[in-house]
């Protein structure tokens, strides 16, 4: 449990600090206008990178589960609950 919390802390810092830096570094160069089209579509592509990565993991897991634990799989064995009153 403690380890998990430590891990989370490290991860959070790794993400938050660079973002904060980015925020305060930007906007100094006043001459070029911000291109909203590029900024917003970039955000979209970043989000889709995350979504499709996580999606690959989740649906990969789901497909593997379905394949591995279907009752017709040769490796399928009865669960310890079968025939009991759970």
């Amino acid at each position: 449990m403690d380890k998990t919390i430590a891990l989370m802390l490290v991860l959070t810092i790794l993400v938050v600090l660079p973002t904060v830096q980015l925020v305060f570094a930007a906007g100094t160069d006043a001459h070029e206008y911000v291109n909203r089209k590029i900024e917003i579509w970039n955000l979209f592509f970043k989000m889709m990178t995350i979504a499709f990565t996580v999606g690959a993991v989740v649906s990969g897991t789901l497909i593997w589960l379905v394949w591995r634990f279907r009752e017709s799989n040769p490796n399928a064995k009865p669960t310890k609950y079968e025939g009991t009153d759970w």
């Binding site: 973002t19 925020v23 906007g27 911000v34 909203r36 900024e39 955000l43």
Partner: peptide, 8 residues
Amino acid sequence: NVERLVEH
């Protein structure tokens, strides 16, 4: 951050 940039 992006919202902040494009709203200015």
